[in-house]
């Protein structure tokens, strides 16, 4: 693989790596640096890449690298997400009322996502935002595909239950 090939891979997968780094580290200032480090690591260990999905390969490196950073920093304290939702949320069509409802549910979802485990959040990120297949997620997390399916299903179920509780005014798991 020459540099041009690698550059192409970097450009294709930068978004995935950035978002994963952000969701694990919760440190916007570190995203670019860590993303660079992840691709450097990927470059250095290209010899260990046995083929398959480069997306899974680099995501796995990103995940391990982020947890290494957290481990070294001994700082697992989660920083509350301070990034507010953009006022101009993507318009998926519908009436203004639909848009407002959608925005509100997205905001609620952001809060509810904080209540699930970090791994589940990563799984949902890979699945819903970056379109990973179950097999690819399993490869990244070094889990069985069935386990991944179960975790995703449970996480969704929990989020839906919490959402419904909120809408009905019942206290959710968040309190």
């Amino acid at each position: 693989m020459d540099r041009a090939d690698f550059e192409l891979l970097v450009r294709e997968n930068a978004g995935i790596v950035r978002s994963l780094v952000y969701h694990i580290l919760h440190s916007p200032n570190d995203v670019e640096d860590v993303t660079q480090e992840v691709f450097l690591k990927a470059y250095q260990s290209l010899g260990a890449f046995r083929g398959g999905s480069f997306k899974s390969y680099v995501t796995r490196i990103a995940r391990n690298h982020c947890y290494d950073i957290l481990r070294k920093a001994r700082s697992h304290k989660r920083v509350e997400s301070t990034v507010e939702l953009d006022d101009n949320l993507p318009d998926a069509g519908g009436t203004p009322e639909d848009v407002i409802v959608r925005d509100e549910s997205a905001r609620q979802m952001q809060e509810l996502l904080e209540s699930i485990s970090a791994v589940d959040r990563e799984i949902l990120l890979m699945k819903h935002v970056h379109g990973f297949s179950y097999d690819e997620i399993a490869e990244v997390l070094d889990m069985k595909v069935g386990t991944v399916r179960t975790r995703i299903s449970r996480a969704r179920q929990r989020l839906m239950t919490d959402m419904q509780r909120r809408e009905s005014g019942e206290p959710s798991f968040l309190g």
């Binding site: 969701h23 990034v83 939702l85 953009d86 997205a106 949902l124 819903h128």
Partner: peptide, 15 residues
């Protein structure tokens, strides 16, 4: 859709 928005939206706050 909510999950997609909620998970991807914070990234827009990055540089």
């Amino acid at each position: 859709r909510s999950l997609q928005t909620a998970l991807s939206e914070p990234l827009k706050g990055l540089q």
